[in-house]
Design a protein around this nucleic acid. Structure first.
Lengths: 237, 237
DNA sequence: ATTAATTAACGTAAAAAATACATTTATTAT
DNA sequence: ATAATAAATGTATTTTTTACGTTAATTAAT
């Protein structure tokens, strides 16, 4: 640190340049068997009609997470989304208006929990991940980075927790993993593997929406999951 | 994003609060078989004598990485250190002076490449990782986070590249991994595993410093390493 | 010149994990 | 009663990981 002036004095700060800080949200959802992303369609100029991520400036008296939660609640009506920091986007010229650093944050959510009318009323759209339009600024890069992170995260955390409804079937869970990794998996091996973690509780109910036989519903054993994460388990499938 | 004013116009920015942005560097080194961290001992009040990480404010016309490189070169004389972003530390009250977000960045370096006199002249010290003093602000947390990240990183990248001298022996590489993971490994299995990656080139020279028999020196095959990283290999040992 | 000391180098067998692969089962609609 | 549909299940093979003891090369001391 510079030591021309005493750190932690007002004067010391005045020697430096404050910068605008924004946060952009990369929100993954899973619905109807496909991975989706929450995007925002601009309704005013400039760039009217262009798509972007949902974002906001960070205020002096709020943390970055709080800023993201604020804008997300505004647009989707959902509170308590667990946001995780991705990385900063801090290139000097990334924003044509003014020097602005954006902190990317991502989350996985259950689309079914949302108030979809509210989402659409605010101009936000759940877009199938495979058909995403081009996004403004460096938002495409943010999305690419988030997918990479999501794949890595899935290796040490059972992400189904966050993306699936409370009760889900094993074929649904497999769909999710296939969507994230973009590849087919063997259903026998998949089932064997996920059950071996011992964090799934089989319920006495079936979901009959996708087959005549119906598939048993499961839920996560949250306590057991916490123990396993603490022990450093690898949840890779 | 707020749409009271057109984004990317000067006025739009003026509605928001700029914030001070700093970067703090968590620099790991490996020397004499032990993992070390570069820390800075404050020579002026307040907190004279306290230890901190090396850091700097980010200027309007420099990227966060450039800011870190600038301060690192100043203190250690080393240019071109490859810094990687850890995460942001953005709690509203983390800094008692003023709202300031710090972006933690970490690097692994070869201590032998450094100008140690320069390091000490600037009041920096290579501290054995296991004997670290308490650090100011939230720097202790940054260090803890960086070690976690380093361990994770080691799973998909051969970090020896960055921490060891150009020529190194397999026992030295094992020491490094034992230091990072804080556990003993079996030398036969370790050797087998690291050689199986196919990124080590055996040289016709021995290092006789640590044994009478001497150990063969190796170097990394950088091209092959790049290929393997691209293919998503797991370098876990 | 011989011996003692020191760390490097090496291979194999057993256990565990990952993979490949096909049939039967429960249910609904006709 | 039958056809249609997706769910559920097991086993053999291959690959990976783990556990473990002996010999080899060199230097320093005698």
């Amino acid at each position: 640190m510079s030591n021309k002036t005493s750190p932690w004095s007002k004067d010391w700060y005045k020697e430096h340049d404050p910068i605008y800080i924004a946060t952009d949200c990369i929100i993954f959802g899973f619905d109807e068997g496909i991975l989706k992303l929450l995007v925002f369609k601009r309704r005013v100029e400039p760039q009217k009609g262009a798509y972007s991520l949902i974002g906001s400036f960070v205020k002096l008296n709020e943390s970055v997470t709080d800023a993201a939660k604020r804008v997300l609640e505004e647009i989707t009506g959902l509170k308590n989304v667990f946001m995780e920091e991705l990385r900063t986007y801090n290139e000097v010229m990334r924003d044509p208006g003014y020097r602005c650093i954006s902190i990317g944050q991502y989350a996985l959510i259950r689309i079914s929990d949302y108030d979809n009318e509210l989402v659409e009323k605010h101009g936000a759209i759940w877009y199938p991940f495979n058909e995403l339009p081009e996004l403004v600024l460096d938002h495409d890069i943010m999305v690419k980075d988030a997918l990479t992170r999501l794949r890595r995260k899935a290796r040490y955390q059972p992400i189904g927790f966050e993306l699936l409804p409370e009760k889900f079937t094993i074929p649904q869970l497999q769909n999710l993993y296939e969507a994230i990794y973009q590849k087919q998996m063997d259903s026998r091996n998949f089932r064997k593997k996920v059950l071996s973690f011992g964090v799934l509780i089989k319920l006495n109910e079936k979901d009959k929406l996708s087959s005549k036989k119906g598939a048993f519903l499961y839920k996560f054993d949250y306590d057991k999951y916490q123990q396993l994460v603490a022990s450093g388990i690898n949840f890779e499938v």
